[in-house]
Amino acid sequence: MQRSCLECGEKLVGREDKKFCSDYCRNAHHNKANRGEIAIIRAVNNQLRKNYKILQDLNPENKGKTSKSRLLEKGFSFNHITSIYTTKTGTVYYFVYDQGYLPLENEYYALVKRT
Results as ranks from 00 to 15, higher is better:
Leu72Phe: 02
Asn79Lys: 15
Ile81Phe: 14
Lys74Leu: 15
Asp57Lys: 09
Leu71Glu: 02
Lys74His: 07
His80Ile: 11
Phe76Met: 11
Gly75Ile: 08
Lys63Glu: 10
Ser77Gln: 09
Lys63Pro: 00
Leu58Glu: 06
Asn62Pro: 00
Thr82Ala: 11
Thr66Arg: 04
Lys65Glu: 12
Phe76Cys: 07
Phe76Gln: 07
Leu71Thr: 05
Ser77Asn: 15
Pro60Asp: 00
Thr66Asp: 03
Gln56Leu: 07
Lys53Leu: 12
Glu61Tyr: 04
Asp57Ser: 08
His80Gly: 02
Lys74Phe: 05
Asp57Gln: 09
Leu55Gly: 02
Glu73Trp: 08
Glu61Leu: 08
Glu73Ser: 13
Leu72Thr: 14
Lys63Ala: 08
Glu73Lys: 15
Asp57Gly: 01
Leu55Thr: 07
Ser69Gln: 14
Leu71Ile: 05
Ser69Ile: 09
Phe78Asp: 10
Lys65Cys: 07
Leu72Ser: 06
Gln56Cys: 05
Lys74Glu: 14
Lys53Asn: 11
Phe76Arg: 07
Asn79Ile: 01
Ser69Ala: 13
Ser77Val: 10
Lys74Met: 15
Lys63Tyr: 13
Ser77Cys: 11
Ser69Phe: 04
Leu55Ala: 03
Ser69Trp: 00
Ile81Ala: 09
Ser67Ala: 09
Leu55Val: 02
Leu72Cys: 05
Leu58Met: 10
Ser67Pro: 00
Ser77His: 09
Asn59Glu: 03
Glu73Ala: 14
Ser67Cys: 00
Glu61Met: 06
Phe76Ala: 07
Thr82Ser: 15
Ile54Pro: 03
Leu58Asp: 01
Phe76Pro: 03
Leu72Asp: 08
Ile54Asn: 02
Leu72His: 04
Ser67Val: 00
Lys68Cys: 05
Thr82Gly: 11
Glu73Leu: 08
Asn59Asp: 03
His80Asp: 12
Gly75Ala: 10
Thr82Leu: 09
Asn62Cys: 11
Ser77Pro: 08
Arg70Leu: 14
Asn59Tyr: 02
Leu55Met: 07
Lys65Trp: 00
Glu61Phe: 04
Phe78Met: 09
Thr82Ile: 12
Asn59Trp: 03
Leu72Lys: 14
Gln56Phe: 08
Lys65Phe: 08
Ile81Asn: 11
Ile81Gln: 12
Thr82Lys: 12
Asn62Thr: 12
Lys53Pro: 00
Ser77Phe: 06
Lys53Val: 08
Gln56His: 09
Lys63Met: 05
His80Tyr: 15
Gln56Arg: 14
Leu71Asp: 05
Gly64Lys: 05
Glu61Asn: 12
Leu72Pro: 04
Asn62Lys: 11
Asn59Pro: 03
Ser67Asn: 01
Leu58Gly: 02
Lys53Gln: 15
Ile54Leu: 05
Leu58Lys: 04
Arg70Ser: 13
Asn62Gly: 04
Ser69Met: 05
Asn59Gly: 02
Ser67Lys: 12
Ile81His: 13
Lys68Asn: 06
Asn79Tyr: 14
Phe76Lys: 05
Arg70Ile: 13
Glu61Thr: 12
Lys65Asn: 09
His80Leu: 07
Thr66Ala: 02
Leu71Gly: 04
